[in-house]
Every structure is written in C-alpha cells, then in structure tokens.
C-alpha cells in the first residue's frame, strides 16, 4: 500500500495553487509532514487529495486512483481533518462522533461503532470529554474531538490540516504520539500540514516542503530541511542542529532581506 501523486494540478478559478506536482511514492506506515509558509498550498494539497476541492492528475492510493471515486466512496479511504475547529454547539462530543458515523453508513453495526468510539477516545486520552458539550470546551478540546471524529472511521489515509494548532504543548505531543501509533498499527499513511518545524522533525518520517514557487523538497527530514530550504521556503536564516539528546532541532537566526 502506498500513495502516489502525479501531475497534480489544483486551482481556484484561473489561479493555480498547485501547478503540476509530482511526489515520490510514499510507503504505508509513514507519517509525513507538509510544511511551508502561509499561502503556498499546504491546505489545498490536503483538500485536493481528500476530494474537498477538485483537481486534475493522479492520486493513486492502494493502486486505486482516488480522483475517479465519488465523494462517498472516497471518504471510506480518506480521513480529512479540516483546519477549522468543530463549532461550539450544544452537542456533546460523543453524539457528534456517533452521528457523523451514522450519517454516512445507514446500516452501521451499532455495537461495533460504540467500541470504535471508545477506542478512539481512549487513544487520544479524551474519555472525560465524552459527555461534555462542545460549547463548554476550549478550542483545543474541540480540536481533539474533531480528530476523534476522523480517526473513528479508521481511514487508511489520514490528511490532517494543522491538527495541533489550538493545542498546548502536552496535547501537541499527545496528539502526534497518538497519530504516530495509529499510523504504525494500522499501516496507514498520514499527511500532516504543520507550522511547527521541530515537532515535524521529531515525529515525521518524511517532509514535504512547499515554498512560494512550489515544491522545494521531499524526503527524510534531516536530508531536506537544510538552511537553503529554510531560506527558500520561509525567507529565514536558520540551521538544524542536534540537541543534547540527539534530536534534530531547527534554530532560527534572522529573517532574510526580502526582495519583492
């Protein structure tokens, strides 16, 4: 099982956000970070793969071109977590996750569904939120519930758009560990759009670096996250060094002179 992206073109109207992207094969069991500055198409890439926006090109997953499937079939393979948090409603977390599953498959085995919900809430460590209203939760807690809603279907391809944007340090690590564990145990593939370079370096097998002029690099984090890549993508002078525990960390020195 693997993910292959060839000649991917995505645009809103006449503006091409992603112009002809080709990615090397991504094997199953890998956690991939999609990094880059604002407005380079991180979210658009995830939306295109998930089918939330239309695209041309090939998105082969598991020897099947996802672009040929209709939305309903596509969501069986793909779990897309939007960047927007779930709304603050008077629904409790449990019934939101429950109803989202019941809404798409009419003949769900209720017992099995209850078990999967329990499994996911346990995996993310949010059992205590199950019967709390979303309106009474913090943004971070709602983000966790949103993630639970995606993971409960056990999709083989996870597309997570900034899943840790509203979380504190403890929960950021918690979520990435949970995703890491899920990807390994299910032999799934996860693409995670992120602004946190150090978290990406620490947890991900591969990085996809997008810059203002398109794809800047794909590969092992230590191979592709170079000072040159940082300069081209973010316009910053930085370096990647090893911390005292041996983990790679990004250190940023200054912003480059921007030539417009």
């Amino acid at each position: 099982m693997s993910l292959n992206i060839e000649n991917l073109i995505v645009g809103y109207g006449a503006r091409k956000v992603i112009a002809n992207m080709n990615l090397p094969e991504i094997p199953s069991g890998s956690l991939v970070a999609v990094i880059g500055p604002n407005a380079v198409g991180k979210s658009t890439l995830l939306k295109a793969i998930s089918g939330m926006v239309s695209c041309t090109g090939k998105v082969d997953f598991n020897q099947q071109d996802l672009t040929t499937l209709d939305h309903h079939q596509r969501v069986r393979h793909v779990g897309y977590l939007p960047q927007t948090l779930p709304q603050a409603t008077s629904l409790v977390a449990y019934e939101l996750v429950y109803s989202a599953c019941r809404a798409v498959s009419k003949h769900t085995n209720v017992e099995q569904l209850e078990l999967s919900i329990e499994r996911v809430f346990g995996l993310l460590g949010i059992e205590s939120l199950a019967l709390r209203k979303l309106a009474e939760m913090s943004g971070g807690q709602r983000q966790m519930v949103g993630l639970a809603q995606v993971l409960v279907r056990r999709p083989k391809l996870l597309l997570l758009d900034e899943p840790t944007s509203a979380l504190d340090l403890h929960w950021q690590l918690n979520v990435l560990q949970a995703i890491r564990a899920e990807v390994s145990s299910e032999q799934a593939i996860a693409l995670v759009a992120s602004h946190d370079l150090n978290l990406s370096l620490r947890f991900c097998d591969f990085l996809i670096i997008l810059g203002p002029k398109g794809l800047l690099g794909v590969g092992r984090p230590q191979d592709v996250l170079t000072p040159d890549a940082l300069r081209a993508a973010y316009g910053i002078e930085g370096r990647v060094e090893q911390c005292s525990k041996g983990y790679p960390v990004v250190l940023v020195d200054s912003a480059c002179e921007v030539t417009l």
Partner: peptide
Amino acid sequence: TSLRAGEEQAKSSGVN
C-alpha cells in the same frame, strides 16, 4: 446532527 459541528466537518465525514 453532524452538520452542527460545521459544514467542513460534516463534509469530511462524507455527508453530502
């Protein structure tokens, strides 16, 4: 019910 969490959330679960 799932729409109450937001349009994007419902859509990503496969609701048309």
